[in-house]
Design a protein around this nucleic acid. Structure first.
Length: 569
RNA sequence: CGGGGCGUGGUGUAACGGUAGCACGAGCGCUUUGGGAGCGUUUAGCCCGAGUUCGAUUCUCGGCGCCCCGACCA
């Protein structure tokens, strides 16, 4: 539908909004009559909202098609056995939603569709001649998020475009990865947003590398780091950085156990007590593998934080680590504040690279009244594993030490994953190669959440009065405001003008409601169509129309002809 | 799952151990008509359950739901 009388439109605007809605996109989309809450994280898309979302989907579809991908659709209920094949009933980071049918068959409500697609593909006799291909769908995804937030920014049910590509080998995959990279960049550009392709962690999806496309904005949850030349862009989960030497000029001293007052307990206390910066202390962070129950002690320089994602990757325990409890500490014979950097039994030690940057550490083996000083990594203790398991921070240097890293925050509007043979090997999905041998597929997958993109556009394009939609995804191109005048005499001309816009094929929302002009203007600003046209006795008298861009402050009175010319351009 | 806040007409809110008030909205009438207008009138509400009490919307407990922070995740 290209036109609509506002008096007939389902879904009203509201002047007031609950102060509980904090995200600006949530607020405006609710107030403007685009969405309505059902339960936490599940939303109705009202006529205005679905128009926008459909336009976003259309842009995505156009670009996916242009890249040679093919649209299809999978069922929403996935046989649970498939998820078991890849072990994702255990590792899926979101709580998988499951249900049974009357026969007792178990299903997962699809949260992502790798298993389904691989199951589909492996059911065919596919040869290398059929490869590569990229198949995608738009479908509702169900994720039992621990916490939904920010309206459409993180929902429990949302429509996602997810694509899956199948290849004979890595080289072929890499071309597709690049193609999807370019496709995504174009999509977000067309949606009116600048995106960063951010190196990220694959998480429960699997595979070895991936990129998040992130649009910078305050409401976002993705924290990432950008080098000055923007060559290095990485999510905080994976961001690498240089650990600078803390005190390389210092002489190495002998290890000593010294007395320490009992009030010295926390990191803050020791800094106060020794009057030294945090970087001079050893810090131990304890985790437990929730599946194997193994206790992990990560030792790190006191000024750094342990990066759990990196840690899980290094230990090959993706999605399995949780904070150790007091009970877990008791299991290895200690308690909070008294975890040693060496010597505990029944646990695995791992060191961060930063331990090599400090001479004469303080701490590492703290008892009730004593602590160790002049501890040197490599001399006094050494862990089996030493790796990069630290969080980067704003202002840290890139790995080569040449540039500063700037911390940014944004919304992850899409992602592309290298999956490699993660799924094809676990699910034994093969094709026949040129030599007639069975070979596992090399795969990638590519996702974009529609609602989240709608919300992100609002986060980026609004002012204090409401939304300012980019023309290409606005619910309507033109918001026609009729002011019939005191005696209603202009009504006829306004209706005629409305008809004229329709005949010319211009998308228009016509505010024909019998309310005050001020209310119409306020709603137009809130709804945010890119062009506002006002017809009133005043404009009719001049034989012209009033025209205003939502993004601009002032209106202009122009000839109808030049208006049409501009709108049809 | 941990911490905090909250649950009153469609929306936003107030008060109170005993009668639930206001504003917006919606309906009707009149007026008004270029930035959420006015007057009158009508409409509509205490999340659920248990307990304490003569009496609970109010106090207590439990449940459910919502928002925010964290954990988690994309």
């Amino acid at each position: 539908m290209k036109f609509m009388r506002q008096s007939r439109l389902f879904g009203k605007t509201s002047k007031t909004v609950s102060k509980e809605l904090k995200a600006i996109s949530h607020k405006y989309l609710h107030q403007g009559g685009f969405i309505r809450e059902s339960t936490a994280g599940r939303y109705y898309f009202l006529p205005l909202g679905i128009r926008v979302r459909d336009k976003v989907a259309k842009i995505i579809e156009e670009e996916m098609d242009r890249a040679g991908a093919q649209k299809m659709i999978t069922p929403a209920l996935h046989p649970l056995e498939l998820w078991k094949e890849t072990n994702r009933t255990d590792t899926a980071g979101f709580e998988l939603m499951t249900l049974e049918d009357r026969r007792g068959s178990s299903f997962a409500l699809g949260g992502t569709a790798e298993e389904m697609i691989v199951d589909l593909v492996r059911g065919y006799n596919i040869s290398y001649k059929d490869l590569p291909f990229n198949i995608y769908q738009f479908s509702s995804k169900f994720r039992d998020e621990l916490r939904a937030r920010g309206g459409l920014l993180r929902a429990r049910e949302f429509v996602m475009k997810d694509g899956y590509s199948f290849h004979a080998n890595e080289e072929c995959f890499k071309k597709e990865y690049q193609s999807m990279w370019d496709t995504y960049t174009r999509i977000f550009e067309r949606l009116g947003m600048k995106s960063y392709a951010v190196e990220a962690d694959n998480g429960y999806i699997g595979g070895e590398y991936c990129h998040e496309f992130v649009v910078e904005c305050e409401a976002g949850e993705s924290v990432f780091f950008v080098s000055e030349d923007e060559e290095y862009i990485a999510h905080e989960d994976v961001a690498k950085f240089k650990r600078e030497d803390v005190n390389s000029e210092e002489e190495i001293k002998n290890l000593e156990i010294i007395e320490q007052p009992e009030w010295v307990k926390t990191m803050e206390d020791v800094q106060k007590h020794y009057k030294l910066p945090a970087s001079r202390f050893l810090k131990n962070v304890v985790y437990k593998n929730r599946i194997s129950e193994e206790i992990i002690i990560a030792t790190i320089r006191g000024d750094l934080e342990v990066n759990k994602t990196k840690l899980e990757q290094v230990l090959d325990m993706v999605g399995m680590l949780e904070d150790a409890t007091e009970k877990d500490l008791a299991f290895i014979g200690t308690k909070t504040g008294y975890v040693h950097s060496w010597g505990h039994k029944n646990c695995t030690y791992i060191a961060d690279l930063s331990l090599r940057t400090v001479k004469n550490f303080i701490g590492g083996q703290k008892e009730e009244k004593t602590d160790s000083i002049n501890v040197n990594y490599g001399r006094d203790f050494e862990h089996e594993i030493i790796a990069d398991i630290a969080m980067a921070k704003n202002g840290f240097l890139t790995e080569d030490g040449k540039q500063k890293l700037e911390e940014k925050r944004g919304v992850e509007v899409g992602n592309i994953f290298q999956l490699g043979k993660h799924y094809s090997s676990r699910m034994n999905a093969t094709f026949v190669d040129a030599e007639g041998k069975e070979n596992q597929y090399y795969m990638g997958c590519y996702g974009i959440g529609l609602g989240r993109n709608v919300a992100t556009v609002v986060e980026k394009h609004h002012d204090e009065k409401g939304i300012i939609w980019p023309s290409q995804i606005a619910p309507f191109k033109v918001h026609l405001i009729g002011i019939p005048g005191r005696d209603g005499s202009a009504r006829k001309e306004i209706d005629e003008f409305y008809k004229e816009l329709q005949e010319k094929g211009i998308e228009v929302l016509y505010d024909d409601r019998d309310i005050n002009p001020g209310e119409k203007f306020a709603d137009a600003d809130l709804i945010g169509c890119p062009y506002r046209i006002v017809i009133s006795p005043k404009t009719i008298e001049q034989g012209k129309v009033e025209f205003k861009k939502r993004a601009e402050k002032d209106a202009q009175i122009i000839e109808k002809e030049s208006l049409f010319e501009m709108l049809l351009k």
